[in-house]
Design a protein around this nucleic acid. Structure first.
Lengths: 272, 272
DNA sequence: TTGCTCCTCACGTCACGTGAGGTGGC
DNA sequence: TTGCTCCTCACGTCACGTGAGGTGGC
């Protein structure tokens, strides 16, 4: 009466494929209880079944192997709190993905059904502005989170300095951010004069530019349609110049998302 | 006034990365309107924006590029019905994945919280049985669908032949099915004598075996726990023999999934 | 002795991302 | 002339799956 399985028996017992088991061995996620030195045959123990089952369920939930390893490690040292925390964090991530999926479905539907919105484009000559800013290299998938945090930081810093913002929440997006889906983003709040608010912020001057500006009405989910219209406008007139795109979050909170207003400003050559 | 974009402008206008646009060119999903013969520079047209937006949304929904291509092709020839059908099929697939995710979460929870169920294992000497069967090489992800169809086929065929089944819906799963996640599955219904029911079915004899049998109570979602217990039982006694695992769907429909009963039979050596 | 199970490479998959190294246009 | 944008390889990523070719155990 031994408690060892061949890899095939262990596969049938855990519903993990043999190839997957060998892979988990290779990467050190689930090491067989014994490996025959002569033949290389793997032997698994009954005691390894729970770990295998957890791995299978977490992989069903698309948790990366590195995180699965962290979960097993926490469980192995009896740290149930950490184990549960890691699982919950992953489930929350899935929850958010589900929300994004739902807004993608809605956006797809309006793409397939509706006609493109026509947009009014305004030319605007923008002077240099003093501002307090937070900036970082940000990836596409993390902008929303990052921007929320940066805006909170900016407001808290200005509050602390006793200064009122001289304009709406705004941000600059380097072209690289759109083209490589990772690049510099600058969240800023305009201020009346030079202010050093400290606390992770920096005083900067937002340079003067000429912009083609459109107001996007509604949720950020279909901001892409406004970008498309604005980009087409600029490209067709061949007036684009290098430089970051600006967004001004003119109406950033509303009970009905349809009431949100975002100005998108695309840098263009000065009109002569 | 041209309507052409550089790849960078098109990227900013559509929110597709430059790398992704080049990839879509390589695989023929979205060919630039023009490519400069001398420099290789790609030029995109305003008219390509809608296609790019659809691609982006479908990719957000994890639709494979081949299917995205099919959607665009249908749209290009004005076949809105086919286009919508492809989209709907994909959304239904996502819906099902969501359901599976939810049952994985539930299964994970009970894994992490509960103690493993202890199971009663029964030794059973099973004589050879006549049956009508449907069999095929089936992949792991498609078993449930396949089995449902096969069972419907079998019942319809027996009905047509005016024969009553002599036992519950059952199936044989080749070891390969578990170990490689693709392999032969045989759905069958026992019958009293040799019956040729035709209609895609075949008369077969299910061979005699000795089995270790456990009754799984509840949904199929955590059938893996019963497999684990049974596999451990067989492995610890070293009585396993090669051969397919059997499942008998004793109670296959119930208002409350907790009332479902599935026998799992694992081939073992005859007891002497 | 014959299959069956197991083994180790080596390479493929999918949809891009990551550099490296180099050229054209304003 | 200087950067900036664009180009093409070639390789990496992630979690395995797909063979090929070969060996051990009953």
């Amino acid at each position: 009466v031994s408690d060892l399985f061949t890899i095939g028996e262990f596969s049938r017992s855990t519903h993990l494929s043999v190839k997957a088991l060998r892979h988990y061995h290779d990467v050190g996620l689930l090491e067989p209880a014994a490996v025959d030195a002569a033949t290389g045959y793997r032997a698994y123990a009954v005691a390894q079944i729970p770990a295998a089952q957890v791995i299978r369920r977490l992989r069903d939930l698309d948790m990366p192997l590195d995180e699965v390893r962290a979960v097993l490690d926490a469980a192995a040292v009896g740290d149930e709190e950490e184990r549960d925390r890691l699982v919950v964090v992953h489930l929350q991530r899935m929850e958010r993905q589900l929300e994004e999926t739902q807004s993608s479905v809605a956006a797809l539907r309006s793409l397939l059904e509706g006609s493109p919105p026509d947009v009014d484009v305004e030319f605007r000559v923008v002077p240099a502005t003093a501002a307090v800013a937070v900036r970082a290299d940000v990836t596409w998938d993390h902008v929303e989170d990052w921007l929320g945090g940066a805006q909170a930081t900016l407001h808290a810093a200005l509050d602390g300095a006793g200064v009122a913002p001289a304009g709406p929440d705004s941000a600059l997006y380097a072209t690289e951010f759109f083209e490589a889906h990772v690049g510099e983003v600058t969240a800023y709040l305009p201020v009346a004069g030079a202010v050093d608010a400290g606390a992770g912020t920096e005083p900067i001057e937002i340079p003067a530019v000429d912009l083609a500006v459109t107001v996007h009405a509604g949720s950020f989910d279909d901001l892409d349609r406004t970008y498309a219209a604005l980009g087409a406008f600029v490209a067709s007139r061949a007036i684009g110049v290098p430089g970051p795109v600006r967004e001004h979050y003119v109406v950033a909170e509303a009970a009905d998302p349809a009431d949100l207003r975002t100005e998108v400003g695309w840098p263009i050559a000065p009109r002569t």
